[in-house]
Design a protein around this nucleic acid. Structure first.
Length: 560
RNA sequence: UACCCGAUGGUGUAAUUGGCAACACAACAGAUUUUGGUUCUGUUAUUCCAGGUUCGAGUCCUGGUCGGGUAACCA
C-alpha cells in the first residue's frame, strides 16, 4: 500500500476537484449544523470529524452553527452540551459560532422579496387541508385557493403574521413552485409558520419561524459555505435547497450527502435515545451505556479513539452498520499504549500462603506500563493473605484451563510462584479459601532454575486492599440489530439487555489505586480498562469498566 | 405507490477513474509473551442478476432484483 497517497472519500474528492478547478477560488468552508434539541452522539462525531477534518486538511474553516428554527424543541442547555462535546472531541470553531436565529431578519427580508417576485404566497388553509391538497405520490396536488392572492395582499398578510395578529396555524407562507411536481417536497412547501412560542435566543421577538428548508441553505449561503455536508436523509431536500438559492440569486453552496453512522447492539436516533432516558432504561444522557458523546466520555472513551474510529468508519452513500467491536478495538488500541496497569480483584477469593510468616510484608516492584517504559514502576505490598479472582481457581480444572488448581503452580504477577496444596469448603460446598505455598526463590516472578508456569494471576494483598464499587457494562441491547425483532408485536425496546449494567460493590484494589482520579486511564491487569466515575468520592471509590481486554479463554469457554 | 439514493468477502472500506479485486476488523491456525493482553506469521472468504459496448468491465450502457430514504406547519 502506498502510504504517501492516503485514501480520499468521495466528499474529499469533490473538495479536491473543486480546489483543482478553482470553483470556489481556493476556498473551503464547511459547517457543523446541529439543532440544539438533544445531546450529540457518536453519529454526530462522524459528521464533526468530517466537517472539521476537511477544513483542517484543505486549509479551510469550519463553523459551528446551531440550527435553531423550532423554538418549541430547542434550549440553551443543549447549546452548552454541544459546545462542550465538540470541544472535547478536539475541534475548534474559534470565533465562528453562529445561530440560524442570527439570520431571522435577513430570512424575513428574503421572504418578502420572494413574495414581491411572485414566488411565495400566504396560504390560509388549515393544516389538514394543506396536507390533503398536496396530493399523493401518484396523484398531483391541487392548488390552494389562496395561491393567486395579489402581491399586496400577500405582503400585508405576511407582515401581520409577523406582527402577531394571527393565532398559531391560521396562515403559513408557502413557496409557489408546482403542485403537480413529481417530488412531493416541491409542491408549494411551507416557508414560515406562526408559533407564539418563546425562542431560547430571540425570546418573544418573533412569532413566525422559518422552516428547515427555507432556513438551511440560506444560512449556508450567508456564511459563505462552499460544501454543505449532511446525511443521506436530506438528499430529497437538495432540489429545494437549490431552488431557494437560485430563486434568491444568492451564493449557492453545494450540498453533499453521506451515510450516517450505525452501530450494532445499540440505537442511534435522538428520538430513541431520549426515549431510553425518559423511560428510565438508562440513568440519563451521560449513562456510560449510551452512545452519546457524554456517555462515551463518562464510560472512559478517549477523543483520540473516537476520531480514529470515525476515520476508519469511512464516508460513502451505503447504508452501513459497523460492528461495535470496531469502536471498542480502536479504544483498546489507544488505551493499550496509554493506560497504566494496576491490579484489582473484582470477585475475590482468599488465598493463604501457608509458608509465609503472618506478620511479614514484602514490597514488590511492578511495571506501570509495558508499552511505555517512561511510565516507570511502583511498589506493591505482599503478605500472607491475598485475594485472587474466584474464576482463576478450579478444584477440578476443565480442559485447557491453566490457572490455579490443586497441585498446580502459577505465578502471581510481579511476586512469586505459588502452588496450591489445599482448599477449604463451606457447608454448601463452595470453595472459601485456597491454601498455597510460595517459592521464595521466585521473588519478582522469575524462577532461577528456569522452570515455567502456564499462568500469571493478578492478586491483591488482603491486609492492604482498598475497597471500591466497580460498574461493569455490556451492550445496551442483546440483539445485534435492535430493529430486527423476533415477534411482530415486539418493538426495538424488547432487545434491551437486562445485564447491560452489573455492579460489583466489594472489589479489592491494590493500594496505589486509592489515589486514582477522574481522567486517569487505567488498566486492571487481565480484566480491562477502567476509569473513575464522577460518582466517586473519598468515602467511596467508583470505577467504570470502559472496555474489557480481549479474552481468548472466555471465548473458548462460551464456544463449548 | 411516486420521487431520490444505494448494492464489492461475515462487517466496513479500496481499486491510480476501463487494465493482476486489495486493506482493516472479525473468524481460524501457529509463534512470542511475567496480562489467555500486546506483538508477529499464516489460512479461509468478495464484485446482486441478465444482456450489451470493448482486446479487456467491479467501473460504461439497457433492463431487472433486492435494500434504504422521503411523502411534518420537525431538523
Amino acid at each position: 500500500m502506498n502510504e504517501t497517497v492516503p485514501h480520499r472519500d468521495f466528499v474529499r474528492q469533490i473538495v479536491e476537484d473543486d480546489l483543482g478547478s478553482g470553483k470556489w477560488k481556493g476556498k473551503v468552508q464547511t459547517r457543523f449544523p446541529p439543532e440544539p434539541n438533544g445531546y450529540l452522539h457518536i453519529g454526530h462525531a462522524k459528521s464533526i470529524c468530517l466537517n472539521f477534518g476537511i477544513a483542517q486538511e484543505y486549509n479551510g474553516l469550519c463553523n459551528l452553527r446551531f440550527d435553531d428554527t423550532n423554538p418549541e424543541k430547542e434550549d440553551t442547555e443543549y447549546v452548552d452540551s454541544i459546545r462542550e462535546d465538540v470541544r472535547w472531541l478536539g475541534f475548534d470553531w474559534e470565533d465562528r459560532q453562529y445561530f440560524a436565529s442570527d439570520y431571522f431578519d435577513q430570512l424575513y427580508e428574503w421572504a418578502e422579496e420572494l413574495i414581491r417576485r411572485g414566488h411565495a404566497y400566504v396560504c390560509s388553509l388549515p393544516p389538514e387541508q394543506i396536507s390533503a391538497g398536496r396530493g399523493t405520490a401518484t396523484q398531483p396536488g391541487t392548488n390552494s385557493p389562496w395561491r393567486d392572492r395579489s402581491v399586496d395582499e400577500n405582503l400585508d398578510l405576511f407582515r401581520r403574521m409577523k406582527a402577531g395578529e394571527f393565532a398559531d396555524g391560521a396562515h403559513v407562507l408557502r413557496a409557489k413552485i408546482d403542485m403537480a411536481h413529481p417530488h412531493m417536497l416541491m409542491r408549494d412547501p411551507i416557508m414560515y409558520r406562526i408559533r407564539h412560542a418563546e425562542h431560547h435566543r430571540t425570546g418573544d421577538r418573533w412569532c413566525i419561524y422559518p422552516t428547515y428548508d427555507y432556513a438551511h441553505g440560506q444560512s449556508d449561503s450567508i456564511e459563505g459555505i462552499t460544501h454543505s455536508i449532511c446525511t443521506l436523509e436530506f438528499e430529497n431536500h437538495r432540489p429545494l435547497y437549490d431552488w431557494y438559492c437560485s430563486a434568491l440569486g444568492i451564493h449557492h453552496p453545494q450540498q453533499i450527502e453521506f451515510n450516517r453512522l450505525n452501530l450494532t447492539y445499540t440505537v442511534m436516533s435522538k428520538r430513541r435515545l431520549l426515549e431510553l432516558v425518559q423511560a428510565g432504561h438508562v440513568n440519563g444522557w451521560d449513562d456510560p451505556r449510551m452512545p452519546s458523546i457524554c456517555g462515551l466520555r463518562r464510560r472512559g472513551y478517549t477523543p483520540e479513539a473516537i476520531r480514529a474510529f470515525c476515520r476508519a468508519a469511512g464516508v460513502t452513500k451505503n447504508n452501513a452498520t459497523i460492528d461495535i467491536g470496531v469502536l471498542e478495538n480502536h479504544l483498546r488500541e489507544d488505551l493499550n499504549r496509554r493506560a497504566e496497569r494496576r491490579m484489582a480483584v473484582l470477585d475475590p477469593i482468599r488465598v493463604v500462603i501457608t509458608n509465609y510468616p503472618e506478620d511479614q510484608t514484602d514490597e514488590l516492584e511492578a511495571i506501570n506500563n509495558p508499552e511505555d517504559p517512561s511510565a516507570g514502576s511502583r511498589m506493591v505490598p505482599f503478605s500472607r493473605e491475598l485475594w485472587i479472582e474466584r474464576e482463576d481457581f478450579h478444584e477440578d480444572p476443565p480442559k485447557k484451563f491453566f490457572r490455579l488448581a490443586p497441585g498446580r503452580e502459577v505465578r502471581l504477577r510481579w511476586a512469586y510462584f505459588i502452588t496450591c496444596h489445599d482448599f477449604v469448603r463451606d457447608e454448601a460446598g463452595n470453595v472459601t479459601e485456597i491454601h498455597c505455598t510460595y517459592d521464595p526463590a521466585t521473588r519478582g516472578g522469575d524462577a532461577p532454575d528456569g522452570r515455567k508456569v502456564k499462568a500469571t494471576l493478578h492478586w491483591v494483598s488482603a491486609r492492604h486492599a482498598v475497597n471500591a464499587e466497580v460498574r461493569l457494562y455490556d451492550h445496551l441491547f442483546f440483539r445485534e440489530h435492535p430493529d430486527q425483532v423476533e415477534e411482530p408485536d415486539q418493538d426495538w425496546k424488547s432487545g434491551l439487555n437486562p445485564d447491560s449494567l452489573k455492579v460489583v460493590s466489594q472489589a479489592q484494589l491494590e493500594p496505589a489505586l486509592g489515589t486514582a482520579r477522574q481522567g486517569d486511564l487505567i488498566q486492571f491487569e487481565r480484566l480491562g480498562y477502567f476509569c473513575v466515575d464522577p460518582d466517586s468520592s473519598t468515602q467511596q471509590l467508583v470505577f467504570n469498566r470502559t472496555v474489557t481486554l480481549k479474552d481468548q479463554w472466555a471465548k473458548a469457554r462460551t464456544k463449548d
